[in-house]
Every structure is written in structure tokens, then in C-alpha cells.
Design a protein around this nucleic acid. Structure first.
Lengths: 223, 223
DNA sequence: GCTATATTGTCACTTAGTGACAGATTTTTG
DNA sequence: CAAAAATCTGTCACTAAGTGACAATATAGC
């Protein structure tokens, strides 16, 4: 809010004892990974905060400083794909269709070797979130955040207000269909489906968004 | 699962000491009402399970037997409108458009006097659920249940399988837009808007569902 | 009213999550 | 590199959420 001219950067405010944003995220990721593993192996209810903390090598008190509650420990894992998707939409050029934009990204995508095992965790948690109510809430909250991001992105693209009810309806519908497709893909992969046999997933998403928004979102728009 | 012929009714199984389903629901409603009041007056975090139990006149232990956790105490209130909506869709005749069906219901609707104060609670919680994360999860879970119900209803109407991905996409998109409109209406009413000045809310919902499903749901279908 | 069964309350207990404070760590600055 | 300023972490004590067990009570059917 109120910023006097002393700070040249309002966002990247570096202070003496603060540890780097990167390091913070790494720890959160590490916690999330272990939490996901434990939740998968023994269930959510049977996993205690103490176990998660021990697995990561932190005190329980510190764990609760990184996450407000047990379930949200897996939030970084569950939010992984969604945040990537949102970031992708933020770079969506106005003169390109959604399908083309997603396809082009899929082609230039490089797969980190370490990322592979992480993707496994993402799939496992997405599937687990369909049955475990405590994880379902986290998954739905994650998608709620995506929806809010899409409101901004769609408003920008359609040159309308983020308060516009139509914009919000489009964002909600789009988020919903993307979520369902994600759940479907995760379930298929978990069942042992070959990733290459899934067909054009991103194309499916693009078409679903186009349909769910009544054709308002998906086509190229005036620059 | 396994039912031998001794019981004539598998659903309405009446046993000696079991209290009536109606009585159970009344207690849940009463708890939900008080929880909603307390959450509204002092916030969710500041309200303890003990306070809720005391307000209803139950022991804390019994409270936790009716609801698994503090937040879900308001679930009956938050689910109120949604369940009514789902029930309405279940009676949706195949040869009638969604808009007509909703409109006809609105006309024949009778307003219980006791229902009025309850509606106030519904609106308050819906609005509160936009800011309070702990309530947002309950609200989203409620809509998740609605979505699952819509899958069945849409599958039935479209004569397709509930596993059909398109059916699930339609249900998800429809639920999402109905949710957003509900949030919008609640916010408007909370801000003091005259209910009569809101225009044709149900018509808006019907049109939004029609759009979000790519025209697949909303029109009359073959009997 | 009697009986079978479910519901409730009390008590003891585990776990989630927080506030406070001292000590260890990190980054910037000189 | 050393010092300073802030943050981060662990320990401790604590509150509140939520559960299991068991005795007492209330309820429906006869």
C-alpha cells in the first residue's frame, strides 16, 4: 500500500536475515513430497504431523510455520500442474488460439529427470483426492485459486472488468472442465495407461474451455 | 449389500431405539443455525465447539457425533439452496426447457415464515464463505456433491453413461456457473439489494447452464 | 409398562495447532 | 572477512479439536 521512495524494489525486498524465496520454496516442496508419500502409504488420517516433520528433518513447530494444517502440506504437489497451466495462460498471445498455444507449449516442453518422480506424486495425490475428503478440500481450494487467476486472465483477454459476471462465469466453467479432465487423466495414468495413448489431452482441454465458455474464450482476439 | 427377505423395506428400516430421521435432521439444522450465527458474530476461528454445543444445549461429545468437525457444522445451511436446486432438477420433465421448469417452480413457490430467517443465514454463510477459507472449503465441498448429483441427472436426461467424460464436463461446468451466480446473488442481497430488483435470477441460471454445457443441457429432449 | 436398541453424557486421551522466547542462521553492509 | 540486523528454528507450555470406552438415559415397538 503506502510505499515511500526509499525502496527501489517493492516486490523483491531483500532484508538482512531473510532467506531466499527459492530456499523457502524448496523446503515447502520437500515437505509436500514427504507428506504426499506418507499420505499415499498410510492414508491421511493415519499420518501425523510429527511423522511428516521427522521425514523432512524439521521440528513439528517449524512444520506448522510452513503449513497451517496437515492437509495443506500436499498443496504444492496438488497445485503443481494448475500453476503451470495458469502461467502458460498468462503468456497466451492474443492472436493465437488456445489450442495452438497449448500445443506449441507441449512440443517445446522439456522433461526434467527429477521432475518425473514428482509428477508421480502429483498423479497419486490427484487420484487420492477423489476419495479422501480431507484431500478433496485441498484440491478444490487449489482449483478455486486457479479460477480466480483465470478471472483476471480472461478479463484481460476479453477487455472486460474482472467484476463482470460473464467473465467470472467463463472462468468458473473453464476451471471446472480443466479440473475434470485433469482428474480423468490422472486416473487413467494411475490405472497404468500409456501417456502416449491418451491422445491429445491439451487439445481436449482447449476445446472443453471453448465449449464451456460458449465460445467466448479460445479463439484469437483483436490485438 | 446382502439383504435377506426378512426386511420389507431396506431404506426405511425402523428399529426399536432409533430416533426418527426427521428428528435427526432437525437437530442437525438446529446446530447448523447456531453455528452459522456464532460464525457470523465472532468469526469461525473465535468460535469453539463448546460454544456451539452450549448454544444448542448438547454436550460437546454429542456435537462431534453429528458433525465431524467445527466447520462442517454449517454444511446444512450452506447446502440448503443447492439441495433444493438438485431436487428441482430431479423432477425436470424431459419435454420442458430448463428455463421454463425453473420459472414455473418460482411461481408456485410458497414462502414459509420460519424459512425467512433461515434464508438470511444461508446468505450470510455464502457471503462469509467467500473470505473465510475454512468456510470456503465447506462451500466448495457442498458444490462438489451437487456436481456429482448433476452427473447422474444429466446422464439420465442425455441417455448417456455417468462415466461419460462429456457428461461429467457438462455437470462440472453447470455446477460452477450456478455456484458463481449464487455467490453473486448472495452478495447483492447482503449489500441490501431488493430481491425484486434482481431480475430474473433463475432465468439467468438456466441460460448460464445452457451456455456452459455448449447447448447440451437446457433444451427439451426426446421423451 | 416392558424390552430391545439407539442416543447421550462423562471421562480420559491423542493429536492439531499456537504463543513466547532463546539461540542458531542467513544476508547485507562495511 | 567480520559485524550487525533481521529472520528462522527449536523447546516448552498451552488451548482446542476430535475420538474411544462405558455407563446412564431416552426412544420406538409390542
Amino acid at each position: 500500500m503506502g510505499s515511500d521512495g526509499t525502496n527501489d524494489t517493492t516486490k523483491n525486498e531483500r532484508k538482512p536475515g531473510r532467506m531466499s524465496e527459492q530456499r523457502q520454496q524448496r523446503i515447502r516442496l520437500e515437505i509436500s513430497r514427504e507428506a504426499a508419500r506418507l499420505f499415499w502409504e498410510q492414508g491421511v488420517a493415519a499420518t501425523t504431523g510429527e511423522q511428516i516433520a521427522e521425514a523432512v528433518g524439521l521440528s513439528v513447530r517449524t512444520l506448522w510455520r510452513y503449513f497451517r494444517n496437515k492437509e495443506s502440506c500436499v498443496e504444492p504437489v496438488l497445485a503443481q500442474d494448475g500453476e503451470e497451466f495458469v502461467a502458460l495462460l498468462r503468456r497466451w498471445p492474443r492472436d493465437v488460439s488456445l489450442e495452438d498455444h497449448l500445443m506449441e507449449w507441449a512440443i517445446n516442453r522439456t522433461k526434467d529427470p527429477d521432475q518425473q518422480s514428482f509428477d508421480q506424486a502429483v498423479i497419486k495425490m490427484t487420484v487420492l483426492a477423489e476419495k479422501e475428503p480431507d484431500l478433496r478440500t485441498v484440491w478444490l481450494m487449489t482449483n478455486d485459486r486457479i479460477e480466480r487467476a483465470l478471472v483476471e486472465i480472461f478479463a484481460d483477454r476479453l477487455r472486460r472488468s474482472p467484476d463482470d459476471i460473464e467473465v467470472r462465469l467463463h472462468a468458473a466453467a473453464a476451471t471446472a472442465v480443466v479440473r475434470v479432465i485433469s482428474e480423468d487423466i490422472s486416473a487413467a495414468l494411475m490405472a497404468g495407461a500409456d501417456p502416449t495413448s491418451l491422445g491429445n489431452t491439451l487439445g481436449q482441454m482447449a476445446r472443453a474451455v471453448h465449449t464451456a465458455t460458449g465460445g467466448a474464450v479460445g479463439d484469437p482476439v483483436d490485438p
